[in-house]
Structure formats: structure tokens, C-alpha cells
């Protein structure tokens, strides 16, 4: 099953490679991973998506917690949470395709953020299913480039993690 794990870690050189190294050394899978400093510059917040049986995910969480750089960790999957992903996508767009792409972008509440005579660059946010759905809808159009941020997650409700 898919698990989305939120991790607060020391914003130190090497902290990311400790997490990544743990996954490769123990053969765990990482579906996506995003990391950036928080409002407290000494901390980074990481969102990691992994798949595994309950036992494996329990081990993953324990092993992550054991890393000296990890301050706190929560498996969001156990609770209700909001998840978002950002995608930037560059497509070939000429003639009537331009209209069609524009229509699709509107339907998905996205934006066109860069334009040339022959291309559009689009921006969309949403949960991963929505992003996947847009990609699906664009299959007939020539996609030049796709960048996805990987998922971010945050628990619903007023309770804060840090």
C-alpha cells in the first residue's frame, strides 16, 4: 500500500543522503521525495512516498526515526490529509492544437505560463490523480517536457506537526 510520510530533519549537509542511503541500503522503495527548508531555516521538511506492506512501512518509519538527523516523523496515511503535486509541462502547440490545449488547461484549473509560436508551457497543481488525468488527456498532443514536483502532504485539521 502507498504511504505518505512527512519528516522534519536537521537542515544539514548530508541529511538528505542519509535518508536516501537508508532506502537503497535496505531495499525500500521511494516513489517520490521532496525536500526544502521550512520557516525555521535550521529544519527541512521532507515528504516521502513509499509503497510496502504494513510491516515494511513500520520498519521504514523506525529506521528513519533512528537517523540522528531526523527530528520528527509522521505517517500521514493513517489520518486524513491533503496532498498536492505541481507539474510543469511543455507541449508542442500550433494551429488548432493551441485552442484545444487552452481548453484543457482551463478544465484542470491550470495556467499557461510561457508561450512561443510553437509551444505552450503549462502549470497545474492538484493531487496526483488529477495530474495523471491531465497527462492522460494530453496523450494526443506532442509533449516536449514534463517536470513533477512529487507529492507534498499535510494533515487536515488544526493540529500541527512541528
Amino acid at each position: 500500500m502507498k504511504h505518505i510520510i512527512s519528516i522534519l530533519l536537521e537542515n544539514e549537509a548530508g541529511a538528505l543522503s542519509r535518508v536516501a542511503g537508508l532506502f537503497s541500503a535496505r531495499g525500500y522503495n521511494i516513489e517520490s521525495l521532496t525536500v526544502a527548508p521550512t520557516d525555521d531555516a535550521s529544519l527541512s521538511r521532507m515528504t516521502l512516498v513509499t509503497r510496502g506492506t504494513e510491516d515494511i512501512v513500520e520498519q521504514i518509519c523506525k529506521q528513519l526515526n533512528k537517523l540522528v538527523d531526523v527530528v520528527k516523523l509522521v505517517d500521514l496515511t493513517g489520518d486524513t490529509y491533503v496532498e498536492r503535486e505541481l507539474m510543469l509541462i511543455k507541449v508542442h502547440a500550433e494551429d488548432q492544437v493551441r485552442d484545444e490545449v487552452k481548453r484543457l488547461v482551463d478544465i484542470f484549473h491550470g495556467q499557461i505560463i510561457d508561450v512561443t509560436d510553437t509551444s505552450y508551457t503549462l502549470e497545474v497543481t492538484g493531487d496526483s490523480e488529477k495530474i495523471d488525468a491531465l497527462l492522460q488527456a494530453l496523450t494526443k498532443i506532442t509533449i516536449l517536457e514534463v517536470v513533477r514536483s512529487g507529492r507534498l502532504g499535510i494533515a487536515r485539521g488544526e493540529k500541527a506537526f512541528c
Binding site: D55, E58, Q59, K62, Q63, N65, K66
Partner: peptide, 11 residues
Amino acid sequence: IDPSSISKNVK
């Protein structure tokens, strides 16, 4: 003392 040792190999 190490939570990750618990239920790692044997439940």
C-alpha cells in the same frame, strides 16, 4: 533499546 530491532525479523 532500539525500536527498529523490535518486530523486525520476528513479530
